[in-house]
Amino acid sequence: QVNIAPGSLDKALNQYAAHSGFTLSVDASLTRGKQSNGLHGDYDVESGLQQLLDGSGLQVKPLGNNSWTLEP
């Protein structure tokens, strides 16, 4: 069960990665100043990332080996 409060997208993504045990490689300029609506409930990694990114204009991309990145 994930419980991440709304706020900074950077912070939300870092909390989610730490909670879910995956690696997220992101260029900080992509997420700077963006906000997230947070995340509450049970999600697989990709669904949770998509939910956190909702409205940010960013997309999640798998890199393999439980690693992910973001792209515009």
Rank of each mutant, 00 (worst) to 15 (best):
Y16N: 01
V45F: 12
W68C: 05
N3W: 13
D42S: 13
L24N: 01
H19G: 07
G21E: 06
Q51F: 10
L24Q: 01
S47A: 12
A18S: 10
S47C: 13
L63Y: 07
G48M: 05
E71N: 03
S56T: 15
A17G: 04
Q15M: 12
R32I: 12
G38A: 04
T31H: 00
E71R: 03
S67D: 05
D44K: 05
L52W: 02
L58E: 01
Q35T: 13
Q1T: 13
D42M: 14
S47H: 10
N66E: 05
E71A: 09
T69R: 10
R32C: 14
H40C: 14
L24R: 01
V2E: 03
K34Q: 06
Q51G: 06
D27V: 08
P6I: 05
K11L: 12
F22Y: 02
I4D: 01
S29M: 10
N65Q: 10
G41V: 03
S36A: 06
P62D: 11
L39D: 03
P62N: 14
A17P: 00
K61N: 05
T69M: 12
T69Q: 10
I4Y: 03
L58Q: 00
L52K: 00
G57E: 04
V2T: 06
L53Y: 00
V45I: 14
L30E: 03
G41R: 02
D44A: 07
D42G: 07
L70T: 01
K61S: 06
A12C: 15
Y43R: 00
P72A: 12
G7T: 10
L53M: 04
G38C: 06
S20P: 03
L53R: 01
T69A: 12
A28S: 11
L9I: 02
D10C: 14
A17T: 05
L58C: 05
G41E: 01
N37F: 11
S25N: 12
S29N: 13
S56C: 08
G41N: 03
G38R: 03
A28P: 14
S20F: 15
P72Y: 11
V60S: 10
N3T: 11
E46M: 14
W68P: 01
P6S: 09
S25Y: 15
L53N: 00
A5H: 08
K11A: 14
S47M: 10
Y16K: 00
S8Y: 08
D44V: 05
L53K: 00
L24K: 02
V26M: 11
L52T: 01
L58T: 00
A12N: 05
N14S: 14
T69H: 07
T31A: 03
V45E: 02
S47G: 09
V2G: 04
G57R: 05
L70D: 00
L30W: 06
E71C: 11
G55W: 04
K11V: 14
Q50S: 10
A28N: 08
G41H: 03
R32L: 12
G48V: 05
P62V: 08
F22A: 07
K34C: 10
L9R: 02
Q35C: 15
S25K: 12
Q15W: 10
D42V: 15
S8F: 08
A5T: 07
E71Q: 09
Q50K: 14
S47D: 09
A5R: 09
G33M: 06
S36K: 00
L63C: 11
P6E: 05
L70V: 13
T31V: 13
G48F: 06
S29F: 10
L30N: 04
G41A: 02
V45Q: 06
Q50Y: 11
G38T: 02
G48D: 02
H19Q: 14
N37Q: 12
Q51N: 07
S29H: 11
T31S: 03
L53W: 01
A5G: 10
S25A: 11
D27F: 05
S25I: 15
V2W: 10
A28H: 09
A18D: 07
V26I: 13
